[in-house]
Simulated assay, not measured.
Amino acid sequence: MQLGIVSPVVTANPGAHSAWEEGAGIAELTRIAETADRLGFHHLTCSEHVAVPVAVAEQRGATYWDPLATLGYLAARTERIRLATQVLVLGYHHPLELAKRYGTLDLVSGGRVVLGLGVGSLEEEFELLGATFEGRGAIADDALAALRAALGRRTPSYAGSHFRFEGMVVEPHAVQEHLPLWIGGRTPRSLRRAVTLGDGWVPFGLGLDALTSMLAGVDLPEGFEVVLSAGRAADALGDPEGTAERIRRVRAAGATLVSTAVQAESADHYCEQLEALASIGKEIG
């Protein structure tokens, strides 16, 4: 069972981050990324919000490191671990913008980018950026199709309901022949979108019973990734049996990859937890 990590430091969601992260920065994050890379973890993550209203920040948090800058730095400090956006909001970007920026990241990282993408739900942020909120689902579907047509191509072309381009050069571009697209969401529609237009599904806020039921109703393509959270932050040192059991339950629910948050009191403790968590992952197999 391959494990990824939900990166600490880069977000500060209330109730989901530890006190040590408040004073941490790029040095601590880099140490953790290098440790996860050495131990063979599958991926690390970075999410996207440009600006969060003050009232919303009380529930969602206000800290969101920019994923392109963050993952670009970590690409230079790691060798194998995949760099996953979890997630970019499709409505905030033109597909060719994503193809160019994250295609460049794919190039400089040696083909390690995973694009986690979502429709978005924060209307105030859409308005701030001049993005269309109403009908955003249909726009996102067309953006996904356009992005797939553009990634890894020097002269992409596409004609859809909302996006159209040809005769344009995108250089550099992604080096992966098929850069993975993981679709975020918590609805049956998001799962259908992922199966139809993506390569994986990254749900959030759903219990295992609901996930199992939703996945049972869909014929998943070969190689399709189901990236599920292991639940509360893992304490692999203090509770190895409980940690292993939660990972097993998530796998039984249909996970092909498990994303884990890690319980820690410092960056050093986080790295020690990663050592123990990697051993648990190997034992589960």
Rank of each mutant, 00 (worst) to 15 (best):
M1Y: 03
L3N: 05
L3C: 05
P8W: 11
P8S: 15
W20D: 03
W20N: 15
A24H: 01
G25I: 09
I32D: 08
T35F: 00
A36M: 13
A36G: 06
F41I: 13
H42D: 15
H43V: 11
E48S: 02
E48V: 02
E48Q: 07
H49F: 01
V50L: 06
P53Y: 00
A55I: 06
V56W: 09
R60T: 11
G61T: 09
A62L: 11
W65Y: 15
D66H: 05
G72M: 04
R80K: 13
R82T: 02
Q86S: 14
L88P: 03
G91F: 00
H94N: 15
L96V: 07
L96P: 05
E97K: 05
E97I: 00
A99I: 01
R101M: 07
S109H: 05
G111P: 01
G111W: 08
V114G: 09
G118H: 05
V119Y: 00
L122V: 03
E124Y: 04
L129G: 01
L129I: 03
A131M: 07
A131K: 06
D141R: 04
D141K: 09
A143S: 08
L144P: 09
A146K: 06
A149H: 02
S157Q: 10
H162R: 08
F165Y: 02
G167T: 01
V175L: 03
Q176L: 12
L181T: 14
W182A: 06
I183C: 05
I183Y: 08
G184Y: 04
G185W: 08
R193D: 10
L197E: 09
D199L: 11
V202R: 00
F204P: 04
G207R: 03
A210D: 15
L211H: 00
G217F: 11
L220G: 05
P221I: 15
E222N: 12
G223K: 15
F224T: 03
V226A: 07
S229P: 06
G231T: 13
R232M: 13
A233S: 15
A233E: 14
D235S: 09
D235M: 04
A236L: 14
A236E: 15
A236Y: 11
A236H: 06
L237R: 14
L237A: 02
G238D: 13
G238V: 04
P240E: 07
G242L: 07
E245C: 02
V250I: 11
A252R: 13
A253K: 01
A253F: 05
G254A: 09
G254M: 10
G254K: 06
A255I: 10
T256Y: 01
L257M: 08
S259F: 06
T260A: 04
A261D: 14
S266K: 08
A267Y: 04
E272C: 03
Q273S: 14
E275I: 13
L277I: 12
L277N: 07
L277R: 09
S279T: 15
I280N: 01
G281C: 13
